[in-house]
Simulated scan of single mutants.
Amino acid sequence: MEPQLSHRVAGSVATVVVSHPAKRNAMTAAMWRALPPLLDGLARDPAVRTLVLTGEGATFCAGADISTLQGSPQEAQGLSVAAEEALAAFPKPTLAAVRGHCVGGGAQLAAACDLRLAEEGALFGVTPAKLGIVYPASSTRRLVSLVGPATAKYLLFSGELIGTERALRTGLVDEVLPEGELDKRVAELTRILVSRSQLTQAAAKEFANGRTDRDAHWVEQAAGSSDTSEGVAAFLERRQPRFGWNVPTTR
């Protein structure tokens, strides 16, 4: 099978699958290039309310396919950072569903998602020290924001892999599921996410990611939306709300 990123949309959930089974779903240069435009198209699709990133089979992503990146390490790093930033900027909730190895570029992608769920037995590692690579500043800051400086330094200095117990304890993952239960929990959580207000989610994502210059924008969006009145009415009437605000298709 050729290395590729595949995707499907069902029930307002877009699922992007990293597929390169011959190399434990390592990302080729072409795959890094393909991710930003794929995400942009999904972000503009009003049918999509949340996104799941996962790997084909029993592995999330073992990093970058080094054999395709030998020509220019700087160019390769630029591609991975562009893909990571595109994922972090996706305007709707994103969730990484992790099995097996989540290492190097795979950990970079998982960290760029809003939430991370892992199956027991998954392994996580940030491995630039094994290759003599300077990890990007933006990626380092994102890792520190998730796990704190001490754990980030351990991961970056050593390149060692950690299991799900430590990943959960340090905040690298949000939930750990028994073997065979990950898909069920991902489906359950995404059903919850798509039922909530996109207005709340989009504003909260920007604020949590450090955007402090858009308060007025979100006040304006809230004032022009019926989401608050619908949420209150649904609560009083003991029914599920039908929120109408959508992320703009042009941004």
Results as ranks from 00 to 15, higher is better:
S139D: 08
R169W: 01
T212N: 00
G57M: 07
V52A: 04
A34F: 01
L69W: 02
P128S: 12
A112P: 13
A26V: 00
S12C: 15
T212S: 07
G171L: 10
R141H: 13
E119M: 07
G148M: 03
A203H: 05
S158F: 04
T151L: 06
L109I: 11
Q198T: 02
Y154V: 04
R191L: 14
L193S: 08
T170S: 14
V126K: 04
R238Q: 14
A89K: 12
T212A: 13
R191T: 14
C102F: 08
A222K: 09
L69N: 05
G132F: 12
L42D: 07
Q221S: 10
Q240H: 06
A112L: 08
T94L: 11
S19I: 00
V147K: 03
T249L: 08
A76V: 01
L168N: 04
Q4E: 13
A202V: 06
L143Y: 03
A34G: 05
G231V: 13
G121M: 12
V48Y: 03
T200I: 04
Q70D: 07
R49G: 13
A76K: 02
S145D: 14
G171K: 08
H217P: 00
V103D: 13
G105I: 08
G78V: 02
R251K: 04
R239H: 08
A150T: 02
A86W: 09
D213P: 05
S67Q: 13
I192P: 00
E75V: 07
G78M: 02
D65I: 01
G100H: 12
P21E: 14
G55D: 11
V176N: 01
G104W: 10
L168W: 04
W245F: 11
N25F: 08
G244Q: 14
A150S: 03
R116V: 15
H7N: 12
A14D: 11
E206G: 07
A216K: 11
A62T: 02
G63F: 09
R116C: 15
C61T: 05
D40I: 00
L189C: 02
F157S: 09
L168I: 00
Q77R: 07
T15S: 15
S139E: 12
H20W: 06
L156S: 06
R211D: 15
F124C: 03
L109R: 13
A29S: 05
E119K: 08
L236D: 11
L172E: 09
